Amino acid sequence: MTDARAQRIAVLTAAARAKSAAKAAAAEHAIRALVKRGEPVTFQAVQREGDVSHAFLYNHPELRGRIEHLRAQARPVPAQPVLPDAESTLVLALTSQITHLKKQHRHELQALRQALQQAHGENLDLRRELTRRGWTRHQSPS
């Protein structure tokens, strides 16, 4: 690597760090302003107030954690309706079953995505091998 290229990379890296630090400071200022005004602290509110992107907030672990914490604090806890015992038990059982099914669905979906990704990779390998052997679409393998 040439000295000029290394210097350009260093300058660009420093500029990116400075820009990121400035955006983090703007987001921090936005959070403080929202809290001071008593407004809800949400990702959208911080984005608007601090002129930063959603992606920046979600990809910045400290800011993301702080926003999620403040958002959760502001959310009122919904009152649980008083149900007769039989209905309450049924609701709890069904809620538990739905939670289990959602978790199972997520795992199955993840397994299918991984299998599809592997199949795409194998397909690409096979196409490369056919190309290496000189086969084209208009030929049939012998």
Rank of each mutant, 00 (worst) to 15 (best):
T95N: 14
Q47G: 09
T95L: 13
A55N: 05
G65T: 09
K102E: 15
A86H: 14
P78F: 05
H105N: 15
R37K: 12
P40Y: 07
L83Q: 04
A93T: 11
T99Q: 12
E68P: 01
L101Y: 09
G50H: 08
H54F: 12
T42N: 08
A115K: 09
A45E: 06
R66W: 00
L94W: 09
E108I: 02
A33G: 08
Y58A: 00
L112A: 07
E49Q: 05
E39F: 01
H60I: 08
Q97W: 01
K102T: 11
R66S: 05
H105T: 12
V52F: 09
L112C: 02
T95V: 14
R32M: 04
H105L: 15
A72E: 02
E39S: 12
L63P: 10
Y58P: 04
Q44A: 09
G65C: 00
E87Q: 15
H107C: 12
R71T: 06
V52G: 08
E68F: 06
E62Y: 00
A74R: 11
R75N: 02
S53D: 02
T42R: 03
R48T: 10
R66C: 03
H60Y: 03
E28I: 00
P81E: 01
R32S: 10
L57F: 00
Q117V: 10
Q104F: 14
E39D: 12
Q44T: 10
Q73W: 08
A111V: 07
H107K: 15
A74F: 06
P76G: 00
A27I: 05
H69E: 13
L92T: 14
V77H: 13
H107R: 14
E62A: 07
H107L: 12
F56G: 05
G50K: 02
E49C: 07
H54R: 03
H54S: 13
Q47D: 12
A27H: 08
V52Y: 06
T42Y: 10
T95R: 15
E68T: 15
L70A: 03
Q80N: 04
Q97Y: 08
S88L: 14
E49R: 09
H107P: 09
Q117F: 01
V52N: 04
I98E: 04
Q44W: 10
L70S: 07
N59A: 08
H105I: 03
L109A: 09
Q47V: 14
R66L: 02
G38Y: 05
F43M: 04
I98H: 00
E62I: 10
R71F: 00
H100P: 13
A27F: 01
P40W: 11
T42Q: 00
V82W: 15
A72G: 06
D51R: 02
Q80F: 08
R106N: 12
Q73C: 08
L92A: 15
A111D: 04
Q114T: 03
T42H: 13
K36S: 08
L109R: 14
I31L: 07
L109E: 15
V41H: 00
E39A: 05
Q114G: 06
H60R: 06
R64V: 05
R64G: 08
Q73E: 06
I98F: 13
Q80P: 00
T42M: 11
V41K: 03
V82K: 15
I31V: 10
E62S: 04
L63V: 04
V91Q: 11
